[in-house]
Simulated assay, not measured.
Amino acid sequence: MRLVHRTLALVAAATATVLGLTATPAAAATIETGHLDVLDVDYTAGALTLDIRSYSPANDDLSPAGTTLRLRSTSAIAVPSGSAWNCLGAAGATVYVAPQAENPNLIWPGWNTEDVPAAQGPVRMELVGVSSVPAGGRFALYTTNSFGTPTFRLNSNSAAGCPISVWPGNIGAGGHAHGNWAFSALGTYTLSFRATANGGAGVASPTVNYTVQVG
């Protein structure tokens, strides 16, 4: 069972529903395991928003503010050899990865545009910044194909040819997928994202900060 401490927030949300008020996304203290759409893009009444969608114990939207995503140190892997992996780190170096395939002992983060109408797509996803990082800390989001070859979607690595601040090709509306969320050092990271409809030409979400604790 996923570790989610959000009792007070859920009570507040339930109370707001009973009173007929508009409930805001609940806030969880820490999440260590389970299925999460970390970049959950919603389009409602002409506004684009970013939050976290959880699936257990119920389908729920969580506010990134006050929510910490913890990636356990057991997620450590060694960077594979080969030039395709250069932007993840030096071959053999340790990185901590929340994997593309579900591991019940780790968070399983993805992205979700199911609530974005086709007319508002595709979604431009931007990594606005990575701050409050440990020494040597870098973040990368990449997918792998059936041959294990990586495609980097976002990357804070400053090495030549590595930085990616805008998701190449954008994210199609009405989709839901997972990738590998990689961190180069133990510690706490603040990741800042912004989503924009119509491939960057439409309405934009506010910049939203996410906290990830590695280790």
Rank of each mutant, 00 (worst) to 15 (best):
Y142P: 00
Y142F: 11
T143P: 06
T144M: 10
T144K: 06
T144Y: 01
N145W: 03
N145A: 05
P150N: 10
F152W: 05
N155R: 09
N157Q: 06
N157H: 04
S158I: 04
S158W: 06
S158Y: 05
S158M: 08
A159R: 01
A160L: 08
A160R: 07
A160N: 12
A160Y: 08
A160T: 08
A160W: 07
G161K: 01
C162L: 03
C162A: 02
P163H: 13
P163S: 12
P163Q: 13
P163V: 06
P163G: 07
I164Q: 02
I164F: 04
V166P: 13
V166G: 13
W167P: 05
W167Y: 15
W167V: 13
P168S: 15
N170H: 15
N170K: 10
I171Y: 14
G172D: 15
G172Q: 14
A173R: 02
A173E: 01
A173K: 01
A173H: 02
G174T: 09
G174P: 00
G174N: 05
G175I: 13
H176A: 13
H176Y: 15
A177Q: 15
H178W: 13
H178C: 04
G179P: 07
N180C: 12
N180T: 11
N180W: 05
A182L: 09
A182N: 06
F183H: 04
F183M: 02
L186Q: 13
L186I: 15
L186N: 11
G187H: 08
G187F: 12
G187W: 10
T188W: 08
Y189K: 12
Y189Q: 11
T190V: 13
T190I: 09
L191E: 03
L191S: 03
S192R: 14
S192Y: 11
F193D: 03
F193H: 05
R194F: 07
A195H: 00
T196E: 04
T196A: 07
A197Q: 07
A197D: 04
N198M: 08
N198C: 04
N198D: 04
N198H: 04
G199N: 01
G199R: 00
G199K: 00
